[in-house]
Design a protein around this nucleic acid. Structure first.
Length: 282
DNA sequence: CACCATGTTCCTTG
DNA sequence: CCAAGGAACATGGT
């Protein structure tokens, strides 16, 4: 469920639930997700430690912990990859099939579940080093963005996925932001004029902000597998597909553009799908 | 069987 | 050294 808005909503949901909870057991069921941290190292660090906070950086979750054995607090870095979820589950509930890491916190377990195991739950914080600014922060300025784009010949859609340019935009919101800005995804990044750069910067902020607001009003009730995580774009069963309906171009090839009525196109860029309207986006 | 999927990293090529 | 392209990772849905 991973792009900046989904991670942000998850962090807001989990952050108040974690403080004062102490790790009583660490069960690593898929070692790849904690790499390069070893199982032993993770256990040594986490056993007896208390959660003190949770924040977000780009698509990463940053867990703050305090161990009674150490003077200094420490951090754990989480990433949801393509299919990751994190949630608290009563101890009596069965673990999900793809539980990658389970932390016992007393009468409930903290679950990191990830079908494809592309996610991370690790003491290695190096993933943060090359991140660009937060798109919703002041550092993501017009000048910064213009300068970053001016050096790249890549199509603008591909460049938006570069986490060192701006942190947190993924494949869905890249298409959505370009549609809102009326800019073709195929345009070379350095060919955007200054008004396009500014429109795109604003569009990125709006698209992400609206997605967070939308997600924040949804009950994030994961009691295991029955109640669905409504932030999941796909896998919506029955009525809860409103999330997809908010998207104006993503996964809508062949459907009518909400602005001009012409069909939404799907193209492939850097081996990933891009959706756009040829009429509205030049 | 084929192709598709919210992400990142590593390897190769130019 | 750098930018860009593609495969790889792993599993499931259609």
């Amino acid at each position: 469920m991973p792009e900046l808005p989904e991670v942000e909503v998850l962090v807001r949901f989990l952050a108040p639930l974690l403080p004062n909870k102490i790790v009583g057991d660490v069960d690593v069921r898929r070692a790849r997700v904690i790499a390069p941290t070893s199982i032993r190292k993770l256990k040594t660090s986490l056993l007896g430690a208390e959660f003190t906070g949770l924040t977000r950086r780009g698509k990463f979750l940053l867990f703050n912990l305090q161990s009674p054995n150490r003077a200094e607090p420490f951090k754990l870095l989480g990433h949801l990859g393509m299919t990751g979820r994190m949630y608290l589950l009563p101890t009596r509930n069965a673990l999900p099939k793809h539980a990658a890491v389970v932390l016992n916190l007393g009468d409930e377990n903290f679950i990191f579940e990830d079908t494809r195991y592309f996610g991370r739950f690790t003491l290695d914080l190096s993933g943060l080093e090359k991140l660009g600014p937060e798109p919703l922060g002041e550092e993501f300025s017009t000048d910064y963005f213009a300068h970053g784009l001016s050096k790249s010949r890549q199509p603008i859609k591909v460049k938006l996925l570069d986490q060192s340019l701006v942190a947190g935009v993924g494949n869905i919101y890249a298409s959505e932001a370009l549609f809102r800005a009326g800019i073709s995804p195929r345009l070379s990044a350095r060919r955007l004029n200054s008004s396009q750069v500014e429109r795109l910067r604003q569009s990125i902020r709006e698209v992400l902000t609206e997605a967070i607001e939308c997600g924040s009003t949804t009950p994030l009730d994961y009691s295991g597998s029955e109640l669905r995580d409504r932030l999941f774009y796909f896998g919506s069963s029955g009525t809860d597909n409103f999330y997809e309906e908010r998207l104006r171009v993503y996964d809508r090839q062949g459907q009518s553009c909400v602005v001009c009525g012409n069909p939404i196109r799907r193209i492939v860029q850097a081996a990933r799908s891009t959706f756009y309207c040829r009429t509205c986006q030049r």
